[in-house]
């Protein structure tokens, strides 16, 4: 068990390293950061000066390892745009995004799992059809558009919630719903198919032959097996919520990491973009690791090889 977690952690580290490498090269090969900072019309001298000032005249691998060395020392570089240490920027804004992501995940769980379970237990009933309808619609709705419609409906026409901002819990209701809704289809379908599959498994037939029926059968025999795959995907979805916060935060004017990302892209602020990609990847990898550990605790086949 310990060994399993250790191996998983090593793999997670390797993935994070690879991702940072990929992002660094993609962002730095695709463009000339010095030119981006200087602007389109800058003279060659200005560009060269900037290049020297930010150390951009060195070969890519050297720059990467300098960047990586900085990251390991806790130095994430300086933002070209805000002229502040990136780490400071990220730290200022992370809290809001974490709140938003967790709230969104709760929305997903509260809608998707009960709906998926009810659909699985009553296949082809009205509730199954409704769940399928919800999944298909939620999958097809453009997330940013849903945000705007929510604002029109629940902040303007029926003013229950504020239009934008991040001061009180009321500010987070609409954004959390919008961000959470995007994961509902995947989790709902997974819960449904997982539970249907489990309910058809031989060991459920065994339990039925021992007299188990209804709620007892579900609680004591089906649920844990059906939820094992859901946990992994929930963790993945939580990781993706951070990346997905770009849209939600820009629509609801929430001052979190997502908005920072959009602003730094539009300001050609490569160090900040790079750092955010790295942070989001680390969050994703950490969540995946957490899911692996939870699965190992719940599934003896992993725990005891």
């Amino acid at each position: 068990m310990l060994k399993y977690i250790l191996l998983r952690s090593l793999l997670a580290l390797a993935v994070a390293f690879t991702v940072s490498l990929a992002a660094f090269f993609l962002l730095n090969v695709a463009t000339d950061p010095a030119q981006a900072i200087a602007g389109e019309d800058a003279t060659q001298e200005v560009v060269d000066m900037i290049r020297a000032r930010y150390g951009l005249d060195q070969p890519l691998p050297v720059r990467y390892f300098e960047w990586l060395g900085g990251v390991l020392r806790g130095d994430f570089g300086e933002s070209y745009y805000w002229h502040k240490p990136v780490a400071e920027l990220v730290a200022e804004r992370a809290g809001v995004t974490i709140t938003l992501a967790l709230a969104a995940l709760s929305v997903t769980i509260l809608i998707a799992i009960p709906l998926g379970a009810l659909a699985a237990l009553n296949p082809n009933s009205w509730i199954d059809r409704m769940a399928l309808g919800v999944a298909v619609s939620a999958q097809a709705v453009p997330n940013f558009w849903l945000g705007l419609i929510m604002i029109i409906l629940f902040a303007v026409m029926i003013p229950i919630f504020p239009v934008s901002g991040d001061d009180t819990w009321r500010h987070f209701v609409l954004p959390a719903f919008v961000l959470g809704a995007s994961s509902v289809p995947a989790i709902m379908r997974l819960t449904r198919t997982g539970l249907i599959e489990v309910m058809g498994a031989d060991y459920i037939r065994t339990a039925r032959s021992k007299g188990f029926r209804g709620g007892a059968l579900l609680r004591r025999h089906a649920l844990r097996n059906a939820l094992l795959p859901v946990i992994s995907v929930l963790a993945v979805q939580l990781g993706q919520k951070f990346g997905g916060s770009v849209i939600t935060e820009s629509i609801f004017a929430i001052n979190g990491l997502g908005r920072l990302a959009l602003e730094s892209i539009l300001g050609a602020d490569i160090p900040t973009v790079q750092m955010l990609i790295f942070v989001f990847a680390i969050v994703f990898v950490a969540m995946n690791l957490l899911a692996d550990i939870i699965n190992a605790i719940l599934d003896p086949r992993i725990r005891i090889g």
């Binding site: 065994t206 021992k210 007299g211 097996n225 094992l228 003896p300 086949r301």
Partner: peptide, 28 residues
């Protein structure tokens, strides 16, 4: 269904199945 499963299944009638590999719950 309830009367049958509580009064008969296990007590009076029991069954074993073909696939021993999948007939036991893997997580308990």
């Amino acid at each position: 269904d309830a009367q049958f499963s509580q009064g008969f299944l296990g007590h009076r009638i029991a069954m074993i199945f073909q696939e021993p590999m999948t007939s036991l719950n893997p997580v308990y």
